[in-house]
Nucleic acid binder design. Structure first.
Lengths: 121, 121
DNA sequence: GTATATGCAAACAATTTGCACGCCT
DNA sequence: AGGCGTGCAAATTGTTTGCATATAC
């Protein structure tokens, strides 16, 4: 992958936040540094960074969000503030259950727990 | 909710399959019975059935799929044949973990295990 | 009779793509 | 020089909505 200024900035922006931003939010941020960048370029680069394994694409309902955290992890989604929190949950039990009971070979685990985070006790 | 022939058929079609169909697939099926139904009507009714709790909407990446199975359950998604299999996995452990470690009040658990189903040993 | 449902088409939102030009290497 | 990356706009895809007409009750 050849160097490009726009991709550099896009990657930095995704890495600068824990908010699992959408393409549109990234677009808005990048424009502060490269005002005439196009949304198409943002999408192309987010996809490219995903393909290279530099970031990760997750889906929140129908919209794509981008996550710099590549280590396997899960999400807590707060219904009140909308925040998505990275957590690492044990899943050995789940893997074993589906292997034993369904003969299913797991390659990837996606767990999202929806509810209310500790800010809204 | 007032009776409508189209909604009746749509509901029957969703209930007739375990394939977690997309709106477009449902549209194709309904047309075998109501050839001049419109895609808009299909979407309206799928949403309405979801609001009434008669079916459930799940997201597979960016596309919506519809599921007649309303009891809490999880999904195994086979990367080889694309099938999505309903399973019931224990999640008491997960609930307890996030309650204890993150003080997060869980209302809904969404687990999808991606991998290879038993047809492709 | 009145409100809800329908078909149709247009509007929308998110994402992708074709093209001519520009910039890494 | 050669090719990948860019900006722009148009195209796609999945879904929603406005409107006039039709239908349930």
């Amino acid at each position: 992958m050849r160097y490009s200024h726009q991709r550099e900035i896009i990657s930095e922006i995704v890495h600068s936040t824990n908010s699992h931003p959408t393409a549109d939010w990234v677009y808005g941020e990048v424009r502060r540094y490269i005002p005439n960048i196009s949304l198409g370029t943002v999408y192309r680069n987010l996809k490219q960074l995903t393909d290279e394994g530099i970031i990760r694409t997750i889906y929140d309902g129908a919209v794509a969000r981008y996550d710099w955290n590549r280590s396997p992890h899960d999400h807590l989604k707060c219904n009140v503030c909308g925040e998505m929190i990275d957590v690492q949950l044990p899943n050995d039990g789940l893997r074993r259950t589906v292997k034993d009971e369904y003969d299913f070979e797991v390659s990837d685990v996606e767990i999202t727990l929806v509810g209310k985070c500790n800010k809204h006790a």
